[in-house]
Design a protein around this nucleic acid. Structure first.
Lengths: 255, 255
DNA sequence: ACTCAGGTTAATGTATACATGAAAGGCCGA
DNA sequence: TCGGCCTTTCATGTATACATTAACCTGAGT
């Protein structure tokens, strides 16, 4: 069922309007590193660059400001926001708190059987990936997609619009997304081994939800987020330029 | 230092532009109950009602949508969002989680002495209110303001833009704000007694931060939010029409 | 009576012209 | 040479005209 929304996992940009195009393209330009944080952006400049009038550009800027990707500049104009290690860590911790809240709600209030089955099926699909002969790029991409769907399904199973919205927002931040960190490590057997503990946590949180263990479910999801945080920070400390990660150019490396 | 921003506790609406006026007036109309959730809103209609063109109205609508106050309607147009008891409880719980995170960060990383002093001064000011001969409307208003400043100062002491932003958002939701619930009870001696436990939690969280007790600080702020949640829910169960609370018309009472 | 097609209406989306404000730069005078 | 004022420029804010789309209603034909 969740095939149409596989691209971004949310439907916040509705139609084929110029405004939605502006949001999409501008966001891609920023996280793709084509607009470095040093570059000053103005409305007219962007309207020429994207081939549309200022009106949809203004809407896009307002939205990306709300997402925290753009920041106003003192003398007018904007720039892409740069993120230091502390901010990244906080964003990931925050995501863990939201998703921990979702897991606790599911454990305390109970989960609909079909939602539980859907989550279990996603875990099983990820399990199957680990059975493959060798764990290559294809498996990483597939795991990332399944992982994102698992996290989104967890939030939406609560039935709470607030939780869904906040989980979406927490995952929209660069680097904080659950799936964005999967591919931090280059790939290969070593990377596979780093994914196994995370997958075990997926299984554990479902067990905790089933057994109505709210505090445990919350703690697992918090630690689950910290797991990806550790992975990212380890990769950041290495000199390698973080290939394959969206928004790598926005990271303010520690001096 | 914190006098200019005393009106709303945040500076998200910068200048005296039509757009900022539109956001302010429209938000007041909604939470003031002048725009019930049943009423359908359109851009042209609002532009006539507020005496400005559609351009600033569009910006305001986009912002209030992001705040969760407005919801698009299927056939075009919007309506003020109505909140059920579950959504209100979740919003308050979420606020407790964010503020708990802030308190834990302060305990773990340490707090700047001047920030700690500022928080202590606010608590002392609130303490002084309880010493008054009788606890009337003036004291309630003063307590609400001090309380809002305490919560805002707690978040901003972390120095994390992310925490500040999320705390602001959590407090911006109707009913979820820390200060909004202070005046739920009518006033008088009985209401005063309901405020004392909350004030004790203010003192306790400062002690926990000072003693570097992160888990305790977080737990206190979570429970602190639940305290106000209990107060609101009790008031909701009573038949009384919730005088003095902003956005009372947005509550979907349990049948 | 029901259905389908056509038009009409009412909403948002878009472009553009103009207003306004602030910041930077140059010029003149001391 | 330095400082202050004026001018210019560039950015966003605002209004408005027009485009577009979708829903609804009306009418006629079966």
């Amino acid at each position: 069922m969740a095939d149409a929304s596989a691209t971004n996992g949310c439907d916040a940009e509705p139609a084929g309007t110029q405004s939605s195009r502006a949001v999409l393209e501008l966001r891609n330009l920023i996280v793709g590193g084509h607009i470095p944080p040093e570059e000053r952006l103005t409305e007219v400049q962007l309207s020429e660059r994207l081939g549309m009038s200022r009106t949809p550009i203004r809407a896009a800027i307002q939205q990306l400001r709300a997402e925290g990707l753009l920041e106003p500049l003192p003398g007018g104009g904007f720039h892409a926001r740069a993120f230091g290690p502390a901010e990244i860590a906080e964003a990931i911790e925050l995501r863990g708190m939201i998703e921990g809240f979702a897991a606790r709600l599911l454990a305390e209030r109970g989960i609909a059987p079909e939602d539980f089955a859907r989550l279990g099926a996603l875990v099983a699909e990820m399990d199957a990936l680990f059975e493959a002969e060798d764990f290559g790029a294809d498996q990483f991409v597939a795991y990332g997609g399944l992982n994102a769907r698992f996290h989104a399904a967890l939030a939406s199973a609560t039935g709470s619009a607030l939780v869904v919205e906040e989980a979406r927002r927490a995952n929209a931040r660069p680097f904080a997304a659950a799936s964005a960190l999967v591919r931090v490590r280059g790939g290969g057997a070593a990377s596979r081994d780093h994914l196994l503990p995370a997958q075990d946590q997926h299984r554990a949180v479902l067990e905790a939800i089933r057994e109505r263990q709210g505090a445990r479910a919350e703690a697992i999801m918090r630690e689950h987020a910290r797991h990806s945080e550790r992975n990212l920070m380890k990769a950041l400390r290495a000199k390698a330029p973080l290939t394959g990660v969206a928004g790598a150019g926005l990271i303010r490396r520690p001096a």
